[in-house]
Design a protein around this nucleic acid. Structure first.
Lengths: 342, 342
DNA sequence: CTCGCTAATTTAAGCGATTAAATTAACTTA
DNA sequence: TAAGTTAATTTAATCGCTTAAATTAGCGAG
């Protein structure tokens, strides 16, 4: 009702100056006498003034909204959002934290990969966007039209408009597979997402092959099980593995959730991990250490990925001419109990 | 560089009318001739015009930003955000989805429970806020000063400024405990968050007591294990349970993540679930069905919570005088393999 | 003293929309 | 045919802030 919001005008009046002086006192873009600054600060405090970002965004030159968008993929199936997956929520958490510390707010969006992000960017005057995951090519074609800095996480998009934050997927997978090989396994199945449309999975498969090669183990097509990257398809792959008699003694999963699904399927059929079959994950989700048995996996510092992405995005916002950056974050093997010597 | 954004002025010029006509054509707040509307629509399409929300928010009367804030708690420990917890990310996902469908965007924030939300609300002209979880009293005192609609999820805050969306926690817990009792258990431990500062946990404890009472089983203080609501404290409680010789044959956990932690601790010490001890959860996180054994638990439709919250918030935005609403969502028991007859 | 110079502040023009109020055009109707 | 309606559009003010340009005051130097 009567509660008009406190505006800069009110502050100006209270401090006995004009709004311009208040603005300069706040931003420090022009020298202001100590006396004036003091009075302005007092007035701000007394009145409980909060700048209105809409006005700030609108008013000339700066044109910055201090808002960044985070685009999270949706599962094709519709319904469940992919970021119900631990991985996405963890990364989202760290993005929010870092962004806030840098004075930015975070808008989330999980729209399907249409032009709608373009609209979002324009509509909300986004200063930048972080895109998590892989998308169809046309998405990247479209997206750059926004003309704002964009950082991709876990994408193998080559377009040099975009910055990229990722881990060394091939090496991680190589590590995982080597670890299993070192423990005597030779018939090693590989569970992964659809190689065709997922650069991350392509790399992880490559790492698996590299390790096999190093141990002179022939790569066998029938040991590779593709599917969606969710629990269900982990189960699905494990069942297919058990049904076809390929006799693998170990499974390297290209994602922890696939491993978790697989573990469940094995359990259901009385196949014990690691006694009857060894199981290796990739990601090290928070849950993975609490599974029974604990999942041996490749750790990537998920929240570090978020941090780096924000850092890079903000740098790119401030340095528009910054050329494509692609930091590669480290991975490491976390030994738990799901793989055993054969 | 030369890419000035397309503004309403550009559209107006292209359509040969004034911005007012364009605005009315878009909003439909005044009658516009078919001919004009057609020309405006064409111009919008041709130029690729997207309305600028900052300007829209700023310009008079409406004063709506079509932006809602979602406040997610931070763990006291700092570091890890609580919404890395499946529960929060799942609810966040559904909130985003529903909000978007209703034409709103979602700003996330996980600041510690200071006045900063107040600032956020003012700064960004938020139309409303959804607050997930319990906060200290002063938080609620502060928050209502924002004068915008606020929907709390899982809070037992009585202040009638706030709407509330929750489940029947006591009943859920009653169901869980009764289920365990029905299977012959009499020494039933209860793992939960800190009762003192968590209304949800208080209710769930009450439900546990109710069920015990119904079966004439005495409530024993030493069977209640409090802690933080995370995996670690699930482990912690289970270890304490095993160390003190209280000899429980079953554990009812007031949250799935507590149950998951407990399962891990039992596993580590060679105590088998459900053979040696039965385990009951609460929440039915997505992961719970994939645990080994599958966790018997109380399902709450997490995403429904999000949907209801958005629905209620938007209703409240449109009907400012709406009196306090508190929809209670249903719970149900999901039978899996972690509880067995004794 | 006056002139220039610097520092601090004010003036005033936007930013991109919305919207109340005024205007114009096209019809009725008496 | 003049007056009265109604419908469609324009005019112009405004939202809360930023910022280029103008103004003012104070000061040292010539």
């Amino acid at each position: 009702m009567s509660d008009q919001r406190v505006t800069m005008k009110d502050v100006a009046k209270a401090a006995g100056v004009t709004t311009a002086a208040v603005s300069y006192a706040i931003s420090g873009k022009r020298p202001i006498s100590d006396e004036t600054r003091r009075r302005v600060e007092m007035a701000i405090k007394d009145l409980g003034y909060t700048p209105n970002m809409a006005a700030r965004t609108l008013s000339s030159a700066g044109r910055s909204s201090k808002l960044i968008g985070v685009v999270v993929p949706q599962t094709e199936g519709g319904g469940r959002l992919l970021f119900q997956n631990q991985f996405y929520s963890e990364i989202l958490g760290s993005i929010e934290l870092c962004a806030r510390q840098a004075g930015y707010h975070v808008l989330i969006s999980a729209t399907d990969a249409n032009e709608s992000y373009l609209t979002l960017a324009a509509e909300r005057n986004l200063d930048g966007i972080i895109v998590i995951g892989m998308y169809p090519d046309e998405f990247y074609q479209q997206m750059k039209k926004s003309r704002i800095p964009i950082v991709l996480i876990d994408s193998y998009c080559n377009d040099h408009y975009y910055h990229n934050v990722r881990i060394d997927d091939a090496y991680g997978s190589y590590l995982a597979t080597r670890y299993v090989l070192e423990r005597g396994h030779r018939d090693i199945a590989f569970f992964c997402g659809r190689i065709k449309d997922n650069g991350v999975m392509k790399k992880r498969l490559a790492g698996y092959r590299d390790a096999l090669g190093e141990y002179a183990v022939a790569f066998r097509d029938e040991l590779v099980f593709e599917g969606d990257i969710d629990y269900k398809d982990g189960i699905e792959s494990a069942n297919r593995l058990m049904d076809t008699q390929v006799n693998a003694t170990a499974v390297v999963a290209a994602a922890d959730i696939l491993a978790i699904g697989a573990a469940k399927a094995f359990y259901e059929r009385g196949v014990r991990v690691p006694d009857d079959i060894s199981l290796m994950g990739f990601d090290d989700l928070e849950i993975s250490q609490y599974l029974t048995p604990g999942l041996t996996t490749v750790r990537q510092q998920i929240s570090l990925k978020g941090e780096k992405a924000v850092e890079l995005l903000i740098r790119s916002i401030n340095e528009p001419e910054l050329t494509k950056q692609e930091p590669i974050l480290p991975v490491s093997l976390v030994e738990r109990e799901s793989v055993r010597r054969v």
